[in-house]
Deep mutational scan, measured.
Amino acid sequence: MTEYKLVVVGAGGVGKSALTIQLIQNHFVDEYDPTIEDSYRKQVVIDGETCLLDILDTAGQEEYSAMRDQYMRTGEGFLCVFAINNTKSFEDIHHYREQIKRVKDSEDVPMVLVGNKCDLPSRTVDTKQAQDLARSYGIPFIETSAKTRQGVDDAFYTLVREIRKHKEKMSKDGKKKKKKSKTKCVIM
């Protein structure tokens, strides 16, 4: 069974824990209790493949930012979460993405942009803004509501699919490099 290491990042209060708990335990946590770091595991079937999701729910508070490099190193894919009623959390996505790329030393890291709290009427981040940002990053965008469960499975499952595509691409690139290195030079 394939294991996928997913990391949920975003500013404090955007609903990272609520999304994760909704996926794992099928219930909505409405009281806000700032996370330092929590880890969850769940076995699911995605596109006919049974897999184990190892999900790291991270601290959004700035005082825990020193811990970010460590979990970013171990993560295979990242859910970059903002709240649709919090423009600052949307603007912060850029910083999370840049930090992930720096730590992973790669421009090509599996990510999904997630606009959470889409059940709320007080939207300050337009869907088109988020779609445009995701398009500019070359990553999928999904709106979710941890409260109603809308888009929750889709967000995590899409990230797994992005990781699969990335692994497939990397193995193809690896095979191309191996083929090239088999060419021999004969000096007579």
Rank of each mutant, 00 (worst) to 15 (best):
T2N: 13
K5I: 00
V9W: 11
V14D: 15
L19C: 15
L19N: 15
H27A: 14
F28Y: 08
D30E: 12
D33R: 00
P34M: 03
I36W: 03
I36G: 00
I36Y: 10
D38K: 00
K42I: 11
V44L: 14
G48W: 04
T50H: 12
T50E: 12
T58W: 01
A59D: 02
G60C: 01
E63L: 02
Y64E: 14
S65T: 08
S65Q: 09
R68F: 12
R68H: 13
R68E: 15
D69W: 05
M72N: 10
R73D: 13
G77F: 10
L79K: 02
C80Y: 07
V81C: 07
F82N: 03
A83M: 08
N86F: 02
F90G: 07
E91W: 02
H94R: 12
H94W: 13
H95A: 15
H95Q: 07
V103I: 14
V103P: 03
K104L: 13
D105R: 06
D105W: 02
S106F: 08
S106I: 09
E107M: 12
D108A: 09
P110V: 03
P110L: 03
M111I: 07
V112H: 02
V112F: 04
L113W: 15
N116V: 15
N116G: 07
N116L: 15
K117G: 13
C118W: 06
L120C: 12
T124Q: 08
D126H: 07
Q129G: 14
A130L: 13
Q131Y: 05
L133G: 04
A134F: 03
R135Q: 10
F141W: 02
I142L: 05
I142N: 03
Q150H: 03
D154R: 05
A155N: 02
Y157N: 12
L159K: 02
V160P: 01
V160S: 10
E162T: 11
I163V: 07
I163H: 01
K165L: 10
K167N: 06
E168R: 08
M170W: 14
D173W: 14
D173S: 13
G174R: 10
K175G: 13
K175C: 10
K175W: 14
K178I: 08
S181G: 05
T183F: 11
K184I: 03
C185D: 15
